[in-house]
Write a protein that binds this DNA or RNA. Structure first.
Lengths: 260, 260
DNA sequence: CGATGGTTTGATGCTGTTCAATTAGAGTGG
DNA sequence: CCACTCTAATTGAACAGCATCAAACCATCG
């Protein structure tokens, strides 16, 4: 019921795993997905950053109902947000990839209405909730970008709601694959059509609003059609056009976005 | 397919319907749902406001793909945001009640990924997207509250995703009724357990990810159980406890929130 | 080697979709 | 005032998509 497969974040390009990462030399923000920043802007963010957290796969770093959750930028690895009903039914709200913000709601509202869990071993840059208002006062540019990233996260959830509400099982899986693939592509996480894919079928089911069994059978059908292949923690997208067509998924991520 | 029943916003307390509404005397912000503001704060917002729009039921004031959408605060009436697939299947993302912000994503991102439609005749306070960054520079407090409201909207969508993904039909309807009722209560829109309810069954179906026919049958079953009654554009909540229990919906809106 | 977590498969039937048709109310024009 | 139209709500019947239950399989790991 909880994702605990540890697919290592490909760490070839990360710094020494024991080092605190300063924003100045951040290897993430040079990726094509992100806006360039001036040294001054980076310095502001570096000051806001209070910690660089390393968590292992399965760690819940924001708890439902938590009242003092911090704001995080995912530096490496995968994570997801989820909600659940009192009887245990769980819905994954969205997945987070490196560069994504996690915890705006939790940091701003009185208490968190969701949980957040690391799907793989992951690193998190921490912006303490206490400093948030200060950031708005002294760094309007960064505040604006924060809000921008919050709006983007909502866009992800919107899309997932469309998926859960209106797509059938085949389309749901296809939409998920298409969306995650596009996001990974932007982060240089795809090579020869293959990307890391640390989700179990249980995660896929929980994200799509399907049962585990039916998710499995749906994956089998899509596999038979040669659209993509999921195995050994990797996803190979074999027929992107067919997947996009089945899912009716044609949105593109904006070419470049901020990163805090 | 489009909501066009015009349930008048109860306008007893609104000003002359032809007048431009300045923020200073805004009758909305004195409601119990909202934070108090100083005159200075109100002046800032009044300066940002460029227009006071009146639209009739059914008007789409943000179009999918639109690149120059403004930011709106709903002043009176109801509205909703939606997405749809290429083949026409439509998913309503969330409903907006007076005081809610609409269009953060659309104003911040390059283009809108959703549409927004007035469900009833409605009034909208307009904050031009061009002034948004200025607001961050010169009014950090207002910017913070804007972000807060954006986070709250995401929380609404999160809850709707949980509903569409994990609740069955009976529970979905119950969850929707419970959530809308609580929000209306906060706005003094409930009297003797009765509130305006301008949704058609098609809207309910589109919001919950159900077919129209099944929505109708589900409503009939709930009606037979005496949980609530929907008729003539009104909702009477007869057994709040039973509805909350069925929906497993126990979240409360924060006591007070900002309003821009 | 048993234990554990994840994947796979078959059987059964409920929940919700689709198709089709009817009813009721509201607005319009003659 | 009465036909005509349009939208919303309603109901029945047939079907299918997906959930649920049960069990087996496979790999990894202590």
């Amino acid at each position: 019921m909880d994702g605990s497969r540890a697919s290592q974040a490909s760490s070839s390009e990360l710094l020494n795993p024991l080092m605190y990462v300063r924003c100045h030399g951040c290897p993430l923000r040079t990726k094509p997905a992100f806006h360039d920043k001036t040294q001054d802007e980076i310095a502001v963010i570096d000051q806001m950053k209070s910690d660089h957290l390393r968590v292992s796969a399965g760690t819940e770093f924001i708890h439902p109902e938590q009242t003092d959750a911090e704001l995080y930028t995912l530096f490496s690895g995968w994570a997801f947000r989820y909600k659940e009903l009192a009887d245990g039914r769980r819905q994954i709200l969205n997945f987070s990839l490196p560069g994504d913000l996690i915890g705006m709601q939790a940091a701003l509202l009185d208490k968190s209405l969701y949980g957040a869990v690391a799907l793989t071993d992951a690193e998190l840059c921490v912006v303490p909730r206490r400093r948030l208002f200060k950031l708005f006062e002294h760094a309007p540019g960064a505040a604006y970008e924060l809000t921008w990233l919050g709006a983007r996260e909502e866009a992800l959830v919107d899309e997932n709601l469309l998926t859960a509400g209106r797509r059938n099982a085949m389309e749901r899986v296809a939409a998920m694959v298409a969306a995650l693939y596009k996001r990974a592509e932007q982060l240089d996480l795809v090579q020869d059509g293959v990307m890391d894919f640390p989700l179990t079928q249980q995660h896929i089911a929980d994200a799509l609003g399907l049962s585990l069994v039916h998710t499995n059978k749906t994956l089998a059908r899509l596999r038979a059609q040669g659209m993509f292949r999921i195995a050994d923690g990797k996803l190979a997208l074999l027929n992107p056009r067919a997947v996009a067509r089945l899912a009716q998924y044609f949105e593109k991520e904006p070419a470049r976005r901020p990163i805090i």
